[in-house]
Design a protein around this nucleic acid. Structure first.
Lengths: 352, 352
DNA sequence: GAAAAAATGATTGACGTCTATCATTTCGAC
DNA sequence: GTCGAAATGATAGACGTCAATCATTTTTTC
């Protein structure tokens, strides 16, 4: 006989199917002794619930909500695009995933969205988080009703989410520093760092990691005073122009607003070689990389993160042990390892 | 009413459930006219078979075989380790995955293994491939019996496999060249390239991509005559020593046998800075990177590739459209973005 | 137009779980 | 020892598909 069923468990425990069912689905009205017997039988037989059969019986549909920042941010546009690409495929697994937009960096906006989700049939939430403690009551309420929650790209308060899916931003900053340092080939230099705001956890983390490695391993490279840009392209542009005047040998933008940076680079007189590292592969940053205006892009693979959020939420909803998931490592793009524009190269690899 | 069932299709087509079933499962003995009616109804209603229900009914178990090269290769050891980590989880999805070892680079060994799989209940095969045309009859026979086949890490003859899962090795070589060139910071240099054998497709591809970018974008860097090492550590060691005597500014090993390289680097007099790029993150290469003996590791993420092979084989077996899969990009490791030794950092992120 | 062959319809019992109902037994309190 | 409450057992129909059987209808063949 193959994998044990609940009937097998009931028989082994010496109780009826109904009682075994009451135990494993914790429906109450069971004597402590029976609970013990059933659990023992479950352990002895190694019973695991057949989720597929259960879902078939219940006509279960998983509803997952992605809370993403609103606005023109190209990175989150990639996330949304991937989600809609996946829609058909998810439907076949009884998963509906929908996106809700939240005002960027607004704790109160996120909190309101979470509150609105309370009492709905939402099974899981992947939220681009904030560290505000104000979110905790809303998160706790959701957890109490059985809604699974994961942090995406930016974490939520640790104790109130089941997992975090995103890169380690300190590590990303360290990586940028290492590559930027290597690119100096032993020569001295001065680097201009730009950030949207050091209040943003990810920006601060990246800068911290960057500074640490430069200071330790590349003492010949001077870090110019950081410029905050609020992720606005115009401010990024001005900062980049300033860096050029200061004869910076390198620029590292830990935040967004890269279109301004790219504009500045293309306007600058052609001679001064300046190493340039930014984050997130999107249309315009990709073109700038191909054109040689920038040298490296550190990317988060939003599509990979979405897939991961989905399988994680699914496993959490089913109460399964989480699958072994390879660690997320920021992807480093140079001009030469850019992926095909729209995965044609992958699908072309298929037969039929 | 939610998603349509086969009964709905039958009703819409004006035939009995039995006939609809005969059509969608191509059991034969159906009039052409009926086939047409049923197919029209399927299209009209957007019917898709409920795979979970079907598998429940059939008590289906997927058997997947991974054909991996035998031997001490640490990269494939990582693959095997990940597979055994996944075993429990796969069992819950009715998937049994087993590994069979094939003599490395032996077309006849691979062919024999494929022949042995013919006539068994194997549903899918992921094979570290070779381009030999001798494999084609065996592959065709397997396909005719409905066994799905994908190439892993190294491709199989294109027309005889459903997909390829692995990195683009030309791209990997180009990436190595770009980073190696950047690390010269504009200074001239001379690079020693090592390969196991240029007969191996992946080695040749990497070298081609590397040479192309160096020649085009870094004319001040000279490529020394390539040394073939047969992936043997001792030969790699000797080649690295030679490179040092030739005052190479950089070494790029496209192949394996890196323990020999690492030994050479640690023996060398401490002054001469030499940029060093290799492939595949394993225990000893990781330590060498941390120690600063080498500068970059280009890695294939065997765990990611295994996961991908599994979901791909699964989708192929179910006759589903393949899920959108983000492109595989070789991962670049520096000293600062190494993953935790055993995913503790991920699991620690979980609640409960 | 009769006989053989092919196609179709109708139905049934799995698969493993959920949900519900109802009858029966056990237990505790007094 | 009785009564009510709590716990248990027995069972049945559903979820959507598969696989099989058998009866019936339609088509083909000469």
């Amino acid at each position: 006989m193959g994998t044990p069923t609940l009937s097998d468990v009931a028989r082994a425990a010496g109780v009826s199917y109904a009682t075994a069912d009451r135990v494993v689905n914790s429906r109450g009205n069971v004597a402590a002794k029976s609970i013990e017997k059933v659990n023992a039988a479950v352990a002895a037989l190694g019973y695991v619930r057949n989720v597929a059969a259960a879902n078939l019986s219940k006509r279960r549909i998983y509803r997952f909500v992605f809370l993403l920042p609103a606005g023109p941010n190209a990175f989150f546009a990639r996330m949304r695009a991937h989600l809609s690409l996946m829609a058909d495929h998810l439907a076949q697994d009884n998963i509906r995933a929908e996106v809700q937009e939240i005002a960027a960096f607004s704790a109160s906006g996120l909190e309101q969205a979470l509150r609105d989700l309370h009492g709905t049939d939402c099974d899981g939430i992947a939220a681009v988080g904030l560290h505000s403690r104000d979110l905790e009551p809303a998160l706790a309420a959701l957890r109490d009703q059985g809604t699974q929650i994961v942090g995406l790209v930016s974490d939520l308060p640790r104790d109130h989410r089941a997992a975090y899916i995103g890169i380690d931003n300190v590590m990303a900053g360290r990586t940028a520093a290492r590559l930027l340092g290597m690119a100096h080939g032993g020569n001295p230099g001065r680097v201009q760092v730009l950030a949207g705001s050091l209040d943003a956890g990810d920006h601060a983390d990246r800068f911290a990691g960057f500074s640490e490695v430069i200071a330790r391993d590349f003492p010949a490279i001077e870090i110019l005073p950081l410029i905050e840009t609020r992720d606005q392209a115009s401010k990024v542009h001005d900062a980049a122009m300033l860096a050029t005047r200061l004869a910076a040998t390198a620029i590292y933008n830990v935040g967004a607003g890269n279109s301004g940076l790219i504009r500045a680079l293309s306007e600058r007189p052609g001679d001064g070689r300046c190493i340039c590292i930014i984050h997130e592969l999107v249309d315009h940053s990709r073109r700038a990389l191909e054109a040689g205006l920038i040298d490296l892009i550190i990317d988060q693979r939003p599509d990979v993160e979405i897939n991961r959020a989905l399988t994680l939420l699914r496993a959490l909803c089913d109460g399964r042990p989480l699958p072994p998931m390879p660690e997320l490592v920021p992807t480093i793009y140079v001009r030469d390892n850019l992926p095909g524009q729209d995965m044609t190269s992958f699908f072309e690899g298929q037969a039929q």
